[in-house]
Write a protein that binds this DNA or RNA. Structure first.
Lengths: 234, 234
DNA sequence: AAATTATTTTGCTTTAAAGCACATTTAAAA
DNA sequence: TTTTAAATGTGCTTTAAAGCAAAATAATTT
């Protein structure tokens, strides 16, 4: 009972497909895609499950995370409007991570075979995709660096810088455009909820943030960026 | 004074270009590529420098690493015969990491423009490249997980599993096909040389390795893999 | 071969971060 | 509103890993 939206009529102008795929290719994807709605907390795909295709986020916030033998979850990537999910398993048969909606999310699903024929028939699309992959790869490698070199203060600051980069800040409320628990922030930063609290205390003293109830206002995004500046190029 | 080898005459059969590029496209790359020899320790490219193109490793061992504000270097990737270097900066203008030869290395250099025209004229090549990127991305994301969830014992074991995966073990000598100092192993594992020594002590007691002078023989590769098994899928 | 230098190993100390338990606050349910 | 449950915050303890310095070993140079 879902109402089928064609790509050309779709309002999501950040969608990777809409921005990089045109004419016949777009019509082809459009006719074969499925779109799904996910509620906050829903698992979009789960690690170990057989991969069937690729997801494009039309609207929403998603975390890609992994379970662990010791219980702590680790977020390996955050994704938002226009981003691609599940593309890392291309050529493989299983998802390696869990993708979980952080807010109500609208995603498009494209089967691997459709995706492949689009790439082969439209080299321009394939090349754009390559650029996207290159960017993701660079970001992820930087993340390896961050996790191995930053101390807790820096990791928590970086988590907010990253969250701001992907989801942005509401200009009125000054809060992140996604609601996260201490535990969820810890899973991004690679630490524990207690440590997140302690760092937030410090950040508040330094007037970088302001907490009201459970809301966190970002008062000085640049100040947070300065904490991790040395780890970035230029 | 370098002797120019055409791709079709090149002995390196693991080269990504040779395996995935044919006919005119191969001839085109062949005519425009440059090949370079690097000695062990040479910097192939350096972070912050302007990127001009992409490297294909014909033969050799390379680490991609980053400097840090606190002094510790972190290796974000190991690469060997047939692998690609510098592809993560596609669409960008600066290298984000240092690529350093771990042994004498023979690489091919292809300018970005040549690379781009090859992708656009051969969608099959672009798609294969996409699969390569997907694999790299997955591996790198797993590495984020490892660095944030493993303890020292596991990190050091994983370093050897990774080294084995990329460079392999000499079947006679049972040593890795690349010589590394404690510091260099530590930079892969994300720890200090002292901790590496301590873990090697343990591994030796457990008959997983055997040290003779500075050589490390891998007696039981599977045993090392078992230490990190829980972090892998399946 | 002897001397010098560099690397690795080892014991010990320090430290940063995790873990725990309990208090407090906030949110949800009755 | 009151009660219950969940999440957050805080002080204190524990622990894993880093850091340091000296000793031992290996590699280089003279």
């Amino acid at each position: 009972m879902r109402s089928r939206i064609e790509c050309k009529d779709c309002a999501s102008n950040k969608c990777f497909v809409k921005q990089n795929c045109f004419g016949e290719s777009l019509a082809n994807i459009s006719s074969k895609k499925n779109d799904n709605f996910n509620k906050k907390g829903d698992v979009i795909f789960r690690e170990g499950n057989t991969m069937r295709g690729i997801y494009f986020i039309m609207h929403g916030a998603v975390k890609v995370a992994t379970s662990s033998p010791i219980g702590r979850e680790q977020v390996v990537r955050l994704a938002s409007d226009g981003d691609i999910l599940g593309h890392r398993v291309l050529g493989n048969d299983k998802y390696y991570f869990n993708a979980i909606a952080l807010s109500d999310t609208h995603v498009c699903f494209v089967e691997t075979s459709v995706f492949k024929e689009t790439c082969l028939s439209s080299p321009e699309f394939a090349y754009r995709l390559l650029l996207f992959y290159a960017l993701e790869l660079r970001r992820t490698e930087l993340r390896v660096k961050y996790h191995s070199q930053m101390n807790i203060r820096e990791k928590v600051a970086e988590a907010f810088v990253y969250l701001n980069e992907i989801f942005g800040i509401d200009p009125d409320k000054k809060t992140l455009n996604v609601e996260l628990s201490r535990k969820e922030i810890a899973d991004i930063a690679g630490t524990t909820p207690e440590q997140v609290t302690r760092q937030l205390n410090d950040f508040e003293e330094e007037k970088l943030i302001l907490r009201t109830k459970r809301d966190i206002q970002i008062l000085n995004a640049e100040g947070l960026e300065n904490i991790v500046r040395n780890y970035k190029i230029n």
